[in-house]
């Protein structure tokens, strides 16, 4: 359990966190999601004790930790750029926290072997970080953080420096790992897809404030404002209202509530097809269809279709000025 109460943090006048409160339930995998500069990494570093909040308090594992230095918090921290100890072998890297705690040598050896097995690095124990790939280094860093049996595991954009396919693999792997070890985990990411895929709990941040917190599906289906809606998934703007592109219905003949639009571009994205349309008023709209639907409509540049906005999802009143829709 992590509780952050009304934390504020400033850097030379720049407000990185503005009265932020979050609860991270025990055993959950929570993602802090937001654009760069939203304060998500700062929040994670405040939880770890790597930054001191200017105001507010932090509880880790039911214990008041606001003034506890990082070394006494029992948190495992994984950095975006691995922070591997370059002059140590994989074994010594993973053993570091246990060696600091002066555990018996054979116990350390056993624990390290076990962890290297868990992260798929068995047999790599005598290598140096420079001899590992990025994905392997990050798994070593995870093993190193897990070795101290932390009360919470904090991951700061852990896959941010990796290739797209390695990222996807590691995400799925992290999800499985979490199911195995159950340690309360907080993941920082700017990638909504990553957050949706991995986390059981989301906290969306913007400009140092929490915009919305909850289960990924709830946030996706009931975003509290246009910013969250735009950040958490693709959006199209229709008469000033944000809609999901896959909620737009396209027909090849007129129908009730439908209006004419011209296809400007058809983009094939594997299973899905993105259709860029121009409405009669000149407004641009993006719709997303399955390939089957698109094939039936025989869409091509310049063809005319009838566009129907979604019936459900009544217009929301944004509680803050609407953000520019992300495309």
């Amino acid at each position: 359990m992590i509780k952050v109460n009304s934390v504020t943090k400033r850097f030379n006048g720049f407000v990185a966190l503005d009265d932020v409160s979050i609860d991270v339930p025990d055993g959950s995998l929570t993602a802090l999601l937001g654009p760069s500069g939203s304060g998500k990494s700062t929040l994670l570093r405040v939880i770890a004790g790597l930054e001191r909040p200017d105001a507010g308090s932090v509880e880790v594992g039911g214990e008041e930790a606001t003034h506890l230095p990082a070394q006494k918090r029992d948190v495992g921290f994984v950095f975006q750029h691995y922070a591997a100890f370059k002059h140590m072998t994989v074994r010594d890297n993973v053993a570091f926290g246990l060696a600091i705690r002066k555990r018996p040598k054979d116990q350390i050896r056993r624990k390290v072997d076990e962890l290297l097995e868990l992260v798929g690095l068995a047999g790599f124990h005598s290598r140096y970080p420079a001899q590992l790939s990025g994905g392997q280094r990050q798994r070593m860093a995870l093993a190193r953080a897990l070795a101290i049996e932390p009360r919470v595991l904090l991951l700061d954009e852990p896959f941010g420096a990796l290739d797209a396919n390695v990222r996807a693999d590691l995400r799925a792997w992290l999800r499985r790992l979490h199911d195995e070890v159950h340690v309360t985990t907080v993941l920082v990411t700017h990638d909504q897809e990553e957050a949706m895929e991995v986390a059981s709990n989301l906290v969306v941040l913007r400009d140092g404030r929490v915009e919305q917190a909850g289960a990924p599906r709830d946030i996706y289906e009931h975003p509290s404002n246009d910013f969250v809606m735009g950040f958490i998934g693709p959006v199209s703007s229709l008469d000033g209202r944000l809609v999901r592109p896959h909620d737009l219905v396209l027909r090849d003949e007129p129908g009730e509530g439908a209006e004419e639009a011209m296809v400007e571009r058809v983009v094939h994205l594997g299973f899905e097809v993105r259709v860029e349309l121009v409405r009669s008023g000149g407004e641009h709209v993006v719709a997303q269809l399955t390939r089957t639907e698109a094939d039936e409509l025989e869409l091509r540049e310049g063809s005319i279709v009838w566009l129907r906005p979604p019936v459900s999802g009544a217009p929301r009143t944004p509680d803050r000025p609407p953000a520019a829709p992300l495309s």
Partner: peptide
């Protein structure tokens, strides 16, 4: 690396 060492105790 120094911060990592600190979080490891």
């Amino acid at each position: 690396q120094e911060q990592a060492a600190a979080t490891l105790g």
